[in-house]
């Protein structure tokens, strides 16, 4: 199991254990973590699975690929750093302990 910690902006933490290979978006939906919507089911077609990767983890999660970048443009006005679409981050041993911050709104 891979531990992923979702943090709300008010500090509330949702620690969850995901099977390797499950996306951070799906993990949130399966475990009742608020604010991640995942309207397209994870195919980079909606942009409603936005998270901010904690600075300490950005090296490990890496940079978004081109399609994700083009979809993230939906959130161009959002000034947060570390924006990623969480359907594109898959739980793996490397990411055990990953901290992602939840946006107040996906729209």
């Amino acid at each position: 199991m891979v531990k992923i910690i979702y943090k709300e902006s008010d500090g509330t933490e949702h620690p969850t254990d995901l099977e390797p290979g499950v996306s951070v978006m799906q993990g949130a939906l399966n475990n009742g973590v608020p604010s991640i919507l995942g309207e397209c089911g994870g195919q980079l077609a909606c942009g409603t699975c936005l998270v901010y990767v904690d600075p300490a983890w950005r090296d490990k999660t890496g940079e978004p690929e081109e399609m994700e970048e083009a979809t993230l443009e939906l959130h161009a006005d959002n000034p947060h750093e570390g924006k990623r679409l969480s359907c594109q981050i898959k739980a793996s041993d490397e990411l055990d302990g990953l901290v992602v911050h939840l946006p107040d709104s996906q729209y």
């Binding site: 309207e39 397209c40 089911g41 077609a45 909606c46 409603t48 709104s105 996906q106 729209y107």
Partner: peptide, 19 residues
């Protein structure tokens, strides 16, 4: 509201042309 309409559907067939 964070409750978003379903005009473009949901899931696998969610509207390709929504943007």
């Amino acid at each position: 509201s964070e409750t978003r309409h379903l005009a473009f559907g949901r899931g696998e067939h969610i509207c390709l042309g929504q943007f």
